[in-house]
Simulated assay, not measured.
Amino acid sequence: MTSAELLDQALVEEATKKSGLIWVKGAGAPAARALWHVWHEGAACLVGDGPGEQPLPGLVDGGSAEVTVRSKDKGGRLVTWPAAVSELAPGSEEWEAAVAELKGKRLNAPDGEAMTRRWLSECRVLRLVPAGSVAPLPDGSLAAAPVTSPATTRRAVPAGLPRLLIKGRKRK
């Protein structure tokens, strides 16, 4: 392995370990999705696709994904890396080890200690293993334009409102 590849590997591992969320775009998914995870044995581990858990669209066993890691303090993009997706067999030794790590990071679980039994029967546990070199940082913004909608957050002030407000102050 070259020194550049070792630096990329170290960057991916450290950034992903320290970030609470990663943005993952599975093959065929329309957009990246923010997912909570844990870094365990050289891969980002995720749990989802079950009741009360995060959806994992486009992430299939044997597929690929693009993972973007943000800075924990500033929220900006640190690194984007390609990943190979593998689903852990429920109840296997690898599954048990990953779930032990995930369980400690799961916040606000509705069922507490029964959570791992629910994950065993109703959810998928995935490993996203770095597969290839990191993508170069973009030169410009990758922000997407908002989808057009008839919904608004602010409208013009009605013409009579200032007079009503002034009258209310005079009565006091």
Rank of each mutant, 00 (worst) to 15 (best):
T68F: 06
A32V: 00
T2I: 01
Q9G: 15
G42A: 09
G168L: 14
G26I: 03
L59N: 06
V69F: 08
V67I: 02
V60M: 02
R117P: 00
L11E: 04
R118P: 01
V99R: 02
T16N: 04
T2N: 07
V129G: 07
R163H: 03
G50V: 01
L21W: 13
A4K: 00
P30Q: 07
G132I: 02
A89M: 10
A100V: 07
V125A: 08
P158I: 01
E66K: 04
A83Y: 05
G76W: 09
M1S: 15
D111V: 15
P158Y: 00
G75M: 03
Q9T: 14
L120H: 13
V147T: 11
R127E: 05
A135F: 13
K17L: 04
L142R: 14
A84I: 00
E66W: 06
E122H: 09
K167I: 14
D139T: 07
P130H: 11
A65I: 09
S149I: 02
T116E: 15
R33N: 14
V125W: 03
P51W: 04
D73W: 11
G20K: 06
P57L: 06
G52D: 14
D111R: 00
L56Q: 11
V157N: 08
W95T: 03
A144E: 06
Q54F: 05
T153D: 12
H37I: 00
R154Y: 14
S149G: 08
Q54L: 10
T80G: 02
L7A: 13
P162I: 05
R155T: 15
A34H: 01
Q9N: 12
G132H: 10
V24I: 02
V47K: 02
A151D: 09
E94G: 15
K17Q: 11
V79T: 08
